[in-house]
Every structure is written in structure tokens, then in C-alpha cells.
Amino acid sequence: MRTIREALAAIRRAPVLTGLSAAMVALALFVVGLFAVATYNLHQALAQVEERVEVVIYIHDDVREAELRLLEEDMLGLPEVQGVRHVSKEEALNRARTDLPEFEELFLSMEANPLPASLEVELAPGFRNPLSVERVADRTTIYPFVEEVRFGRDWIDRLYLLRRIGGIATGILGTAFAVVAGLIIATAVRIAIFARKDEIQIMRLVGATNGFIRRPFLLEGAVTGTLGGLLALGLTFLATAAVSRTIFPLEWIPGEWALGGVAGGGLFGLVASAFALRKYLREV
């Protein structure tokens, strides 16, 4: 109770300093927030592209129904496979007509349907990579009625490379942003504690225990960090909304990311306070 009272009293006594600390924390976390929005949207865009990764198995015209079902079940039994869709010769032709209307006359003049039936194999999330796709494709080679397997090897390779580069860049930049934000938060907390070093020294002089001195400062650090985190969240939301409205649509980050950012601000404020206090608790 005394801890809360003292922490609130300290904030009330120096509202400008508390406000500035929270603003510094907010700006530091705002940059992290913008990066999180960018990362999330990039991730979502790649995921959407990846959803289109599939293996198309073209089938000989003379395949029997039972053989086709065997292949279909075999595919569905693979962990990499999420679903299998059978496209008949007729459906393939209809699709071609829809997709290529400029060749409508050509399609009408044809006496027989030249397009093969196929199985479109949809891959499960986490398996939309070159290795998995290759494994699924290789599996079909044991079936003699399979005419051809297509999965756009080059395209998948590039997508996978892009994803890896994105992952590494996100990791490096994210770490750098987090470290910079951490240093800024630590500095903000350090300045706030430095402004009250006389108070700490007097507490030490008159015989306050270290724990007694530490507790309100830790709470104050956590409150400042949390306030900064909430402010950063608000700024990030406004920036995302502004970009969505004027430039291109962006998706808002998941709730747990937002919660994690605010909690992270509070936690960092607390830890930074503990470190900044150590110096003064050793003096006098």
C-alpha cells in the first residue's frame, strides 16, 4: 500500500519528468510498433502467396476411377498435404475458356478435349517449401498413370528465399530496434531516478532498508513503462489507420502482439529501474 502511495506521490510531485519519461518510452516503442505492423503485414502477404503453393498432378485419360482414388488417398495420407481436389477434363476446359476468353473460337473448333484431368494438391501450412513440394511430387512417380507433375519449382524457390531473407532481416532489425528501444527506456528511467538521487541518499542515511527504497521506484518504472507502451500502441494504431486510409491497406497486429508490447514496456521499465537503482543503493 505504501509502495503504491509513494509511487503515485512521486509521479504527482514530478508530472513533467514522469510525462517526459513516458513519452521517451512511447516514442521508442512506437518505432518498434511500426516495425511490428510492417513485419506482420509482410508476413500476411507472404502467407497469402504461399497459400497458392500447390502441386498439380496431370493424369492420363485412360486412368481408372479406383486408381485415381488410390492416388488421392495416398496424397491425403501425407503430412504435407492439406487437401486434394480432382479437376476433370471438362472442368479443365471450362476453366480454360473462362481464363482465356480470347481463345474461345479455338476451343469451339476443337473436336476433342485435349486438356488432361488433374489432381490439385494443396499443401499444409509449414510445408509450403521447396523440400516438401519436391517430396510430394516424388511420391507420384510410382503411379504409371501420372502424366506430369507441375509445381513451379523456380517460383517456389524464390518465394522460399524471399521468406528466409524476410525472416533474417526481421530478426536483425527487430533485435536492433528492441535494443535501441531498451536503451532509450533505460536512459529515461535513469534520468528519472537521477532526479531523485538525493531522496534515495536521504532514505539510506536515515536507515531505510534497500527493499523499502526499491519498491516504489520499481513500481514507478513499471507504471512509466506501461504508460509509454499504451501511448506507443495508440500512436501505432493511428499511424496504421492513416496509412491504410491514404496509401495502401494494412492489417492491424494481433491482440497478443499489442498486449506483449505494452507488457514489455512495463517489464522493461521495472528492470531498468532495478538496474539504475543498484548504483545509488551502493552509495552512502
Binding site: I202, G207, A208, T209, N210, R282
Partner: peptide, 22 residues
């Protein structure tokens, strides 16, 4: 120990030329 100095400080007070008031 440093973390026990408070026990002494409650028996030994200190006043300074610059007062050290808040």
C-alpha cells in the same frame, strides 16, 4: 553487510553542513 547498514543508521544519525533536506 552493506544491505544491513540500515540497522546501524537507525542508531547513528548524521547531520551535514548542507542540511540534505528534501
Amino acid at each position: 553487510a552493506p544491505h544491513e547498514v540500515w540497522k546501524l543508521r537507525r542508531r547513528v544519525s548524521h547531520v551535514f553542513q548542507d542540511f540534505r533536506l528534501l
